[in-house]
Design a binder for these strands. Sequence first.
DNA 1: GCGTATCGCGTTTTT
DNA 2: CGCGATACGC
Length: 731
Amino acid sequence: MKNDFLPGHGFDAPGVDLNGLNESQYEAVTAIDGPVLVIAGAGSGKTRTLVHRVAHLMDQGVAPESILLLTFTRKASQEMLWRAGQLLNESCSRVVGGTFHGIANLLLRRYGSQLGYGSTFTIIDRADAEGIINLLKSSLGLAGKSKQFPSKRALINMISGSVNKSIELEDLVDEQFAHLSDFTDDIVKLRDHYQNFKYDHGLMDYDDLLVNWKRLLEESVEVREAISRRFSHIMVDEYQDTNLIQADIVRLAAYTHDNVMVVGDDSQSIYAFRGADFYNIMRFPKVFPNCRIVKLEENYRSSQPILSLTNDIIRNATEKYTKTLFTRIEGDIKPRVYGARDEREEASFVVRQINKLRTEGVELEEIAVLFRSGFHSYKLELELNTMGIDFEKRGGLKLTESAHMKDVLAFLRLLVNTQDNLSWNRILLQLDKVGPKTAQKITNTIAASDDPFEALAAYPGGKTWKGGLERLNTLFVDLRGSEQKPSALFEIVMGYYQPVFESLYADDYPKRQKDLEQLKAIMAGYDDLQTFIDDTALDPPENDTQADTGGEKMILSTIHSSKGLEFDAVFVIGMAEGRFPHASAGMGEQWEEERRLLYVAATRARKHLYFSYPRELMTPDRQFRRVGMSPFLAEITPGLYERVEPGASTFMRREPPYKSPSTAEFSGLPKAKKKEKKLSMDELPAGTKVQHPFFGIGVVKKTTPPRSLDVKFDRHGVKTLHLDYAKLTLL
DNA sequence: GCGTATCGCGTTTTT
DNA sequence: CGCGATACGC
């Protein structure tokens, strides 16, 4: 197996400070052999611990390219490797870091043929999956039952949930969706059609990537051994968010060596709805019997008043695995709770507080507003806009999820996978006088043929839309005849699409045009179309509407997408009955997951924490209804927070739009880049004093050619270090 | 009668 | 923004 088929990530950065682990924790975390389970509370340094282990393994001569670091977002793995770079030298960039899905994709492109999949599959995202379900719903005659039939989103969650949990869909419906049991047969039928549809057209969704990775490991001894040997050490972050399949993958991939380290916190499990199962953490010691368990209970993030309140939130959980978190961070600012008259007033409260915080010296980018659902922030977004405060919204629509973006991508996807029915359908629907029926008829005919492009050219068009079909054909002739550079292809597509685009979105196409520009810029960075297509499905770029102004921005985010981040000040808005927990969360596991969600939100804060809720909400029939505060807030011990009274801050004058004074100051600064000089063995004879970023000061005891040396450190004893990986400085 | 164009309304959370 | 109900055109 070649070593270079999985890319690492680059980084560069100077020193980092590691908070202390005690002797036995240290021992476990740095052990070169055997499984390790780290159970860690919020803000206790999970990521730091992982980085620490990477650093240590490399110091002991483990080759960086045989370390596999699995995280949930690509951002997280980049962040982690960046931190590792602070500890070590640039060889760290050869550590393989990625998401489960990303690694699965690379492995399947390489070995997928062993499963009967060619290497020409297209990865589809959630919206694609919903589109397919919709097509099938109408072709199976289920569209009419809409009223009680589950929404397509719920449907996808049920279908993929049943795959993830290895439960039969029938049982899942009986147990958790009893109210849908009348539709069990229909749902099962739909699931089967959905699976077949994907297989027939070379489409793979997120779950398929995992399922097929697991199959690859199970069914081919050869591949399993190759992967297990290739990665001698495997690490997983946010282990409580893994599903059963991912746990199996980890088990199988490590089967020759058991060198697995996972970190997680059962109190932060918020992804059960997509199959995550925090019992994976509890199971870990059974799956890996000789594993070492490390509990990290010191919180390095929040002040005591905030920690007391967050501990109180989780105290009320019916099921918990107690960790008593403590902090040494001082502070006396209690969390605050504010009941606003309505949503508008809630928004202006938040803005007032933000301005106040900024006069106290809190940076704008250190302030975050969190909420349960994407649309809860609409009112606030308006208010922030009028006040001229820059913000970035996370967890909303991704760039590639908007219609015009999908349109363009559809052309490109067809060049890579001609069987991609979804894209055919999408493109044909753009033609004037062609609707769902006609589009599907054409799609069915051409996707079944050997050369769909030929078939399209030969397709007898109807009188009214013959012209459009011909123009489409010329486009494909052009596309297939051109050089294969993605950016060149983009230009050709736009030549055809621009007029279609302008008439399709006549009212607001200038706004959307900017997105297309952004896509163009992204594509310019790719040489290979396939890679580009994969990346957009696996890791869709965020929608930066106010493209890089370079200035500071505050963060608006759903709680789910705020995971793993931390801020000086956090506002949790919409803490009202019916909003949080979500109205459809019944008692039981769902209710508990909502509670953990609030816990995640509150534990993002370092110094300032605010909860607010509107006392009045608009109901579906445009009536206003009075609501109380969220039951989760109501059950918190009253002394742990302060109430802000509605009248209290009204005397504050409105601040003018605030322009950050620090922006100009920092924008001109070049990125600090440190060039590390590699030490040679000659510079390090026995007796030399050296410094190591973690172990501290030590003395060289012995040198072993070519590039190993034993160093005795005051606090850590004798360590064997490898000169290529350890970041040593001469003293 | 089939299929396409249009208008209005309610949104869970996502790798 | 996407879905469902309704209205028009072939």
